[in-house]
């Protein structure tokens, strides 16, 4: 432990405060007893798909196309997920199947 107990508690609180500002701000700016402006309602409706796209790319940000295995495990696993999902349309099956394929690829194929 590098910091003292009191310093560590302060660090935890500082990090929590920063996080909570980002989580609570929208709800404080637009309290539920007041109807939010139309533009905010519009954003609330169109943001979720865009943010899901952001999260997908964000998760893959460290994948290198230049270095071996050139993002192949990710590409194959994503293809498996998309095909499985189109075929069976079962959320858990697609996630489980894709993850399993990925684990086999990084542990046994592209080592």
């Amino acid at each position: 432990m590098h910091l003292t107990a009191v310093q560590t508690v302060i660090m935890i609180l500082a990090i929590a405060l920063g996080t909570m500002i980002t989580r609570f701000t929208p709800f404080l700016l637009f309290p539920e007893r007041k109807e939010p402006p139309k533009i905010i309602l519009y954003l609330g409706r169109v943001l979720p798909p865009a943010m899901m796209g952001l999260l997908v790319v964000y998760c893959l940000k460290a994948v290198s196309i230049v270095e071996a295995p050139h993002g192949l495990p990710e590409l194959i696993a994503i293809a498996v997920i998309v095909v499985l999902h189109k075929w069976k349309d079962n959320v858990l099956l697609s996630i489980g199947g894709g993850t399993l394929v990925y684990m086999v690829l990084v542990q046994a194929v592209f080592v």
């Binding site: 696993a77 990925y102 990084v106």
Partner: peptide, 19 residues
Amino acid sequence: KGLDFVLTALFIVLFLEQM
């Protein structure tokens, strides 16, 4: 190794659901 991909897979599938 590779198990953390489960969260990536979750986002991909929920993205497909939204689509």
